[in-house]
Design a protein around this nucleic acid. Structure first.
Lengths: 342, 342
DNA sequence: ACATAAAAGTGTACCGGTTCCACTTATGTT
DNA sequence: AACATAAGTGGAACCGGTACACTTTTATGT
């Protein structure tokens, strides 16, 4: 373990001043003779010198780090989002600090505290919905905050990137109705989440347009974590007049719900048609192949990173950006066409 | 966007010197009167002061950041590894910088360069297999390097955490043999990877013990990315005497292989028995439920983080640690018991 | 040959914390 | 009452880069 060489070591070894070395390090910051530049570069290589980011950041906290705050990364949706965000950030020379909250307010606030101390230039997050004061503070501090997939209504001045939840749920439900289903159930995220609420709203709209009765028993909210999804599925199946079709609109709970249905021996789509909000390769592998609402994760990532970095460019425009990307309905085999008993 | 208060602002507002504020910030670094401490804390809260990590790190680069360098995070195996690593690190107050290489040497070297500049205290990585010089340099610099899931034989002095690939492949193959299969195929990682080679070796060992003929046609290597897995599956099925059982030992390619089998209309386990190295919830949802080799990802994560942080404790012991954790065989329904035509 | 401008290079303050050392005041001992 | 000791606090150097203001060297024009 060697002692790390500093810029002064390099300067001395190359017989120049530290200012010159700094210029070599930051092309364009001042003139350096070609010969000198070569000599300095050689010395740096020989000494194994690497400028220290911490020292650099001290002068002007440069936008070289981005915080990515997700519920958890074992969820394939978030995993793929993380992957895309990291790639997108790297392509711009930005590093990503990954943190997870487990949907826990307390953990979220701790993570945010460390992000503040690190003076990250931007944060891309799926907020739990609390910690309002901290989010506000972050914005006051000049940190660019972008909520992805969800938002917090009481924080209207934060940028948001998500799919069009209302429209996605509406079209999924409308498709089921068009296939002759009259009792359509939905399992969505918690009522406290905008995602959950918007999807329910889209669902209602579709029912209304189709002239179908709305039954509150068919609407279930499930927490993002834990066994809630499975319980909701069981509950839906045990009501007096069970649904013939189900929209699983809580991405985090998709596998949980399907496992419960499978264990209950429900025939899909014979007994129950299913459409899920999820886009992983495996949805095509199960039998029957699942009809899905595909989230364009790459677009979510691209827009999020762009917004999170936008303050650098000087987006002084005040107005928060709200970007909604369209989700795509991919029909496969888990939805049955019913005979209309009219 | 306020101007960020510094420690000097706090000191002035509280009517004390910066040294005192620093002591309040770092309990145990020196005596502070209770009254003063309270006053300083109040001022910090009022001013919204947060100490800046970059400045702190400048003095002694403290082990507060860890680099996690993976191929990609969209792969569920890596995603869950990332999730566990992040949780494990957070529980120790460490942050994780996530980077991906896409299995690309060039990208890997760039990522490593930035990790060097950041002076991270440790790196947990799935190495591509190249960039030997950089890995060496990192170790010389005192960075704790831990390879997870794979290793590089020509870098024997690096810590490694992985499952016991040899034993896992051996027991999986042995199980198939015990079920009466005589033509057993295997799709493993590239021959250049230790993972791939070890699994093949375990497979061979099992065949030998079972007294089965080894046919090179039944052994396929597939790159971690791209369509290689699917092609390998197709190739296996089109040989003269195709296998009746298949070990899919390339975690990254599992879905690719299964998709190809499914599209080819192969009956599992009727025509082909399948056992896969994978442990995601969905393996239970497909029909038939897959028999799997489960990787204890939480253990991999825990050990990796521990090793990556061990240099702090002063593990001057020289010898690199090699930790192999056992994988678990979970029998479900994708393996058929054959009549022995003896 | 000389004025003059451009290029190359240097010295040093600064970023925001941490920490060593010196100093003052309170407490305890005999 | 005299003095040793400890608690509380302040001053300033330092970490490793960056950049401004300034000096020295080299190139250009007539």
């Amino acid at each position: 373990m060697q002692k790390q060489p500093t810029i002064r070591d390099v300067a001395q070894a190359a017989g120049v001043s530290v200012a010159v070395v700094s210029r070599v390090l930051n092309p364009g910051s001042g003139p350096v003779a070609a010969a000198t530049r070569g000599r300095v570069n050689d010395v740096m290589k020989n000494l194994g010198y690497h400028p220290r980011t911490a020292a650099r950041e001290l002068k002007y906290g440069p936008p070289t780090t981005l915080g990515l705050l997700l519920a958890d990364v074992s969820n394939p949706f978030f995993a793929r989002l993380a992957d895309q965000v990291v790639q997108e950030a790297h392509s711009r020379g930005i590093q990503v600090l990954l943190m997870t909250t487990q949907e826990d307010d307390q953990l979220e606030s701790e993570r945010l505290a460390t992000l503040i101390e690190r003076r990250v230039s931007g944060i891309i997050a799926t907020p739990t919905g609390n910690n309002l004061a901290i989010w506000k503070q972050l914005q006051d501090l000049g940190t660019e905050v972008v909520f992805v997939d969800r938002s917090i209504p009481s924080l209207p001045e934060v940028d948001v990137v998500s799919i069009d939840n209302f429209e996605s749920a509406r079209s999924a439900t409308a498709m089921l109705a068009a296939h002759g289903h009259r009792r359509i159930g939905i399992i969505s995220g918690p009522a406290s989440s905008t995602t959950g609420r918007d999807r329910i709203a889209g669902y209602r709209q579709a029912l209304e347009t189709a002239g179908l009765e709305q039954d509150e028993l068919l609407i279930r909210h499930a927490a993002f974590r834990g066994p809630a999804g499975g319980d909701a599925a069981s509950a839906l199946l045990s009501i007096e007049e069970p649904p013939t079709a189900l929209v699983v609109a809580n991405t985090a709970q998709v596998t949980e719900v399907l496992r419960r249905l499978s264990h209950a021996g429900i025939d899909i789509p014979g007994t129950l048609s299913v459409i899920v909000f999820e886009d992983s390769p495996w949805t095509e592998l199960v039998t029957p192949a699942l009809t899905i609402v595909r989230q364009p994760i790459d677009l979510l990532a691209r827009h999020s990173v762009q917004l999170a970095l936008s303050n650098t460019q000087g987006k002084t425009s005040g107005k928060p950006s709200v970007i909604r990307v369209a989700a795509e309905l991919v029909e496969r085999s888990s939805v049955a066409r019913l005979q209309l008993a009219k």
